[in-house]
Nucleic acid binder design. Structure first.
Lengths: 147, 147
DNA sequence: TATTGTTATACTCTATAACTATA
DNA sequence: TATAGTTATAGAGTATAACAATA
């Protein structure tokens, strides 16, 4: 154990962070109104494609830190929705290049924010300083999760 | 949409926070060494019992923000492991009172930290200031997730 | 009749193992 | 022989609907 464990009923930072992530994740997953066809995991993959451009299925799996078979299913679902294209790699016949379609790009740009209403409302209830803390924390978490 | 959407490829705070939570959650679920019999969800329930004492199954479900049938399964698994007891409510025959056993308390106190090694190591790589930011952010997230 | 909890069932998310096709 | 991807299968996590027992 590296981090200190504070006394007096206070829990270690790792414990509190773990519980916070598990519970917020649960709330976020629950926020899928009837119209929301795309799951959190799928949105995460779409976001990677949106941010980094077309890439192979394996590269996408590595970036999302999931195993290739898991990504195969995510890509298949997104392709069925018309949000991504799968094309053979020009020089390596083993690879599949995945890219956003226009519909996929539009989804990320616009419709995701509808899905995000609950979280936006919670964030709007915070002070500017609290939002700044969260913003900084998010950057730290992204760094940790990519390690 | 309430929170501002920053320009220049920067994503809104809600989007970045959602991705951070989804991805860290994924990493945390993956960290279950062979000996780790208890899942993240079960640990979360154990933590609630540890922090707030014995409570009814329904109260535990409400606190964890899951539906009663989901909590029934979690409690059944924890009871089978010997980490919780289920006893009839003294005055209301419909309710089941769930409480930590000595083994459950010992698990939360000691063994959970083994499970937490990966996260502890990541946290140890941060600066004091970054850990302070995360600690503050965790408090904010807990508040948001309880709303 | 309303509330508490459980059982039955189903869908999402993810993994490991085994397989196919290409390099 | 090694790599990229897919298929098959399984377990965790959660929900809704239907039910039983008690209030």
């Amino acid at each position: 154990m590296v981090a200190e464990r504070a006394e007096g009923g206070e829990q270690a930072l790792a414990t509190r962070l773990r519980l916070a992530v598990v519970r917020l994740n649960r709330r976020l997953r629950a926020q899928r109104g009837g119209a929301a066809v795309v799951t959190l995991t799928q949105i995460s993959a779409l976001s990677s494609l949106h941010q980094h451009g077309p890439m192979s299925a394996g590269e996408l799996a590595a970036r999302e830190r999931v195993q290739p078979p898991s990504m195969t299913r995510v890509i298949a679902a997104l392709a069925e929705l018309g949000f991504v294209d799968r094309r053979p790699h020009p020089s390596d016949g083993r690879q599949t290049v995945v890219s956003l379609t226009a519909a996929g790009r539009a989804y990320v740009d616009v419709d995701v924010s509808i899905r995000e209403r609950w979280l936006d409302e919670r964030l709007a209830e915070l002070t500017d300083e609290e939002r700044a803390v969260l913003s900084h924390a998010v950057a730290i978490i992204h760094r940790m999760a990519s390690t």
